[in-house]
Amino acid sequence: MSPLVLHPSCAPGPARAITATISPTPSGCEAVFRLTGEIGAIVVPPSKPCERRDNLWQTTCFEIFWQPLDGAAYREFNLSPSGQWAAYDFDAFRQGMRDAAVGAIALACSHDGEALVLTASIASDLPRPARIALNAVVEIADGTKQFWALAFPEGQPEFHAEANRTLLVN
């Protein structure tokens, strides 16, 4: 599991640590996100039907950015503890956004007072080799948000920045 870091502009809060792992599969990838802390003080979206939904990043959500090494285009996945998901393709940095073709996404989420674990199985055409970013938005009960990533560029939190894509997958 790779540790995510809290963006320097975010105050510490009930989320104490987040780790994530991703593994390519013949049909796409599998990922696991583990958030530890005071789960009762974090907004955890209630369970809903597993379906595509926009704007999941506005509350607690986990994200994967997948970019082939040979180009500027990339795919973004938003994975909600609710079971809902989104997938978008971009031609370049925040350009040409459109829904991505996805075969299927299966999400499982469990949590207790100290840990929340989201497991994702994604069937999608994901070219390799690729650079990967693993990120999280954590909404605290008071409405503030924390931003977590493997790495951040200078300045405000920007999950679309190539600087976040520090994992290499062959």
Rank of each mutant, 00 (worst) to 15 (best):
S9L: 07
A161Y: 01
C61G: 02
L168R: 15
T144G: 04
L167N: 07
S23N: 10
A133Y: 00
C29A: 15
A161S: 11
Y88I: 13
Q146C: 06
T60W: 10
K145D: 01
P81I: 00
H160S: 09
G13E: 00
A108P: 05
A120D: 11
P81N: 04
L6G: 02
P3T: 02
P8S: 01
R98I: 00
A87N: 03
V43G: 05
V102I: 14
Q67F: 03
I132V: 15
L4C: 01
Y88C: 10
P81H: 07
P12E: 05
L107F: 05
P14Y: 04
R128T: 15
A41P: 05
R165L: 09
Q58D: 10
H7S: 02
R98H: 10
R52L: 14
W85Q: 09
S27N: 08
Q156W: 07
T25M: 08
R128W: 05
P127D: 09
N164Y: 04
A141E: 13
R98S: 12
P49M: 08
T25L: 11
A41I: 05
R52N: 10
G37Q: 08
E76G: 11
W85K: 06
R75K: 08
L134C: 02
P8N: 06
F90T: 14
M97L: 05
L167P: 01
K145G: 04
M1R: 04
N170C: 14
F77S: 00
N55T: 07
S124C: 15
R34G: 00
P157H: 03
A17H: 06
P81S: 13
Q58T: 15
V44I: 15
A104M: 10
R53T: 14
Q58G: 12
V138G: 02
L134M: 08
A31D: 11
I140D: 07
V169C: 12
A130H: 04
I132G: 06
A41S: 02
G28W: 04
A130Q: 03
L134Y: 06
L134S: 00
G83V: 15
T19H: 08
W57N: 13
T21A: 08
L168Q: 14
P49C: 12
R165T: 09
F159D: 09
L150F: 00
D54S: 10
D125G: 09
A130F: 05
N55K: 07
L150H: 00
R128N: 03
P45V: 12
F93R: 10
C29N: 04
P8L: 08
A108W: 11
A41N: 05
P24T: 07
A130N: 02
A163F: 02
D89T: 10
E38H: 13
H111N: 15
R52P: 12
T21F: 03
A163C: 08
T21L: 11
H160N: 05
L150S: 06
V102A: 07
D89R: 04
A130C: 11
R16T: 06
L118F: 07
L168H: 13
Y74S: 13
G113K: 09
V102C: 04
P24V: 01
F159M: 02
F93T: 11
Q67D: 06
L107R: 06
T59Q: 09
A101Q: 14
D70F: 06
S80E: 11
V138N: 05
L107W: 10
E38M: 11
N135A: 15
